[in-house]
Every structure is written in structure tokens, then in C-alpha cells.
């Protein structure tokens, strides 16, 4: 029994990690006032590029780095359109999704069905990894999980206790006021979009390098959109993102747990999407609170 619990929890952590990475990135992007709906596309591109590089070089860390860079590169398109040109952020984000899914399909076709020979090795953290139950669940994961946790803590600290944090939040709340204080609004927003892109790319790499260790078209399966919902759910706070991400990680694992019970796999596949809707609707009950937490100028282009 204990081994089942451990395995479920371990898998929950694994399934939640890409969601956490993506959500953290989107939180930073949205805190600066830019809505990036292109997560799904950036994740797909990260997944495919990470996979190709790992497959050819045999070194997952190269794959991870490539995914990160590709995420940044493609998100720079959205940054250019929505920050520099002041274009419609919704449409630009959708275009980004289409482009990312398209390119990843194009590049990934030769690699469909080829399993990865190497993978990210789990890292056994000394002492902590030996704690019963907890150690096995939390401290014997692979690098993705540790990176996500460290980044989450860093972002929380950055936003609440540093000068940059104040600048990023101000740009999302009232860009003109920030500009009058000598802040380069476009620069801050541009960087935040790129940061979001890097994390989405990394989240994608997790899917193809750690979660499934292979490339299939549609590997992201709507996770990019779930990430956007989780961003709202976490009220744009990095620490709250942990709760949301691992909750949804659990729902993904639940699918596999329930399968042997004879429930239709199609119905189980619906679960994460229904849960996403449910979470958003539940959040709507405390609508006032959410409205006050939301960056005031989210989605509004800033042109002087």
C-alpha cells in the first residue's frame, strides 16, 4: 500500500512540474501587463527542440537549454507585436500557438515513435532523500522539479522584496506612472515575455525528456491553456502556483489510476479540462478579490 501511495505522489509531482514551470513564467509575463496566450505553442516548440537535441547529442542538458532558448526566441515574436507594436495581445497569442504547434509538428515528424535512449537522471539529495516517504516523493526527483521549485521561490522573492519586483508590478499596474519614474516600460515587458517564453520552453522539454521520454504530435494536450487558467487561479502569486500545479498534476495521475476500473478513457481524458473550467468558475464566486489582484493593465498595450 505504501509503495502505491509513494508512486502516486511521485507521479503527481512529475505531472505537476511542467504546469508549475509554465505557470511561473506566465505569472511573470502577466505581472508586467502582457497576456501571452501562446503557452501551448511555446511548450510544443520547447518539447520538440529539446527532444531533437537530446536525441542527437545524447545529453539532456543540451536539450533543456535548447528548449529554453527556443521558447525565448518564439516568444520574442509575441513580445515584438504586443509590446513594441501595441498589437492585439489575444490574437497575437493565438497566432503564437498556431505557429508553435505547426513548427513542432513539422520538425518533429521524423522523430515520432523514437524513444529516448538517455533521460534526465533523478538526483538523490543527500540526507533529505533518505527521509521515509517524503524523501522518496520530493527529494529523489530529476532536475526539472528542483529547478521549478527554486525558480518559484526566486520569483516570489523577486516580486515582493526587490527593486525589480516593484518595477515589474508597477509596469503591469500603471505603465505611464512607471515611465515617469524613469522605468523603460517596453524593456521590462519585453524581458518578462521572454522569461515566460523560456519557462514555457522548459516546461515543454519536461514533457518530452522526463514525462514521456518520446515525441508525439499533440504532446502538450492543452497544458498550455491549463497553465493560463492556473495563473488566474494562483492570483498571480508564485507561491500559490505550487498548489494549483500539483493539484492538476494529481488530476492527470488520477486518469491513470481510474483506467483499470473500466471507466471510458475518453471520459477520463476530459477530467483535466473539466477541472480547469471548475476552478475558474469557483474563482468567479470570489470575483471581487480576483479583480483586485489582477494586474490592472493586463492585456492593455502601452503606447506613449
Amino acid at each position: 500500500m505504501e509503495s502505491v501511495i509513494i508512486s502516486v505522489l511521485r507521479r503527481t509531482i512529475v505531472a505537476g512540474t511542467p504546469l508549475l514551470l509554465g505557470t511561473l513564467g506566465e505569472i511573470m509575463t502577466e505581472r508586467s501587463g502582457v497576456l501571452n496566450l501562446g503557452i501551448e505553442g511555446m511548450m510544443a516548440l520547447g518539447a520538440v527542440s529539446g527532444f531533437i537535441v537530446t536525441y542527437t547529442t545524447g545529453e539532456p542538458w543540451f536539450g533543456l537549454t535548447t528548449a529554453l532558448v527556443m521558447g525565448m526566441l518564439i516568444s520574442s515574436l509575441h513580445a515584438f507585436v504586443s509590446v513594441k507594436l501595441g498589437g492585439n495581445q489575444v490574437v497575437s497569442g493565438l497566432a503564437l500557438t498556431m505557429l508553435g504547434l505547426g513548427i513542432s509538428g513539422l520538425w518533429g515528424k521524423p522523430f515520432i515513435g523514437k524513444p529516448l535512449a538517455v533521460k534526465m537522471q533523478p538526483i538523490h539529495i543527500p540526507v533529505l532523500g533518505d527521509i521515509p516517504l517524503l524523501g522518496e516523493v520530493l527529494f529523489r526527483q530529476d532536475a526539472f522539479f528542483y529547478i521549478a521549485v527554486v525558480l518559484g521561490l526566486c520569483f516570489w522573492f523577486l516580486l515582493s522584496h526587490t527593486r525589480w519586483g516593484i518595477e515589474i508590478r508597477s509596469v503591469g499596474e500603471y505603465p505611464l506612472a512607471s515611465e515617469t519614474q524613469g522605468i523603460n516600460v517596453h524593456w521590462v515587458r519585453f524581458s518578462c515575455v521572454l522569461l515566460g517564453g523560456a519557462l514555457a520552453g522548459m516546461a515543454g522539454a519536461h514533457l518530452s525528456l522526463s514525462y514521456s521520454k518520446s515525441w508525439t504530435e499533440g504532446i502538450t494536450a492543452g497544458r498550455g491553456w491549463i497553465v493560463i487558467a492556473l495563473t488566474i487561479f494562483s492570483l498571480w502569486r508564485p507561491l500559490r502556483a505550487f498548489t494549483g500545479a500539483f493539484l492538476f498534476g494529481g488530476i492527470f495521475v488520477l486518469q491513470y489510476l481510474l483506467q483499470p476500473l473500466g471507466i471510458s478513457p475518453s471520459f477520463l481524458a476530459m477530467l483535466p479540462y473539466m477541472a480547469t473550467l471548475g476552478v475558474l468558475i469557483a474563482g468567479g464566486v470570489k470575483r471581487e478579490r480576483r479583480r483586485l489582484q489582477e494586474p490592472a493593465m493586463l492585456g492593455e498595450p502601452y503606447v506613449r
Binding site: G86, G87, N88, L99, L101, G102, G105, G108
Partner: peptide, 23 residues
């Protein structure tokens, strides 16, 4: 012999160039 996703690439690029045109 291209994958079906190729059309998404076309769509994405066209949509991007249209928004940039709006500028």
C-alpha cells in the same frame, strides 16, 4: 511528405503578419 501540422505554420505566420500590418 510533410506533416499535417504544416498548415498551422501557414496560419500562424499569416495571422502574425496581419496583426503587424494593423500597426
Amino acid at each position: 511528405g510533410l506533416p499535417a501540422a504544416t498548415v498551422h505554420v501557414f496560419n500562424g505566420i499569416l495571422l502574425f503578419s496581419l496583426i503587424m500590418g494593423d500597426y
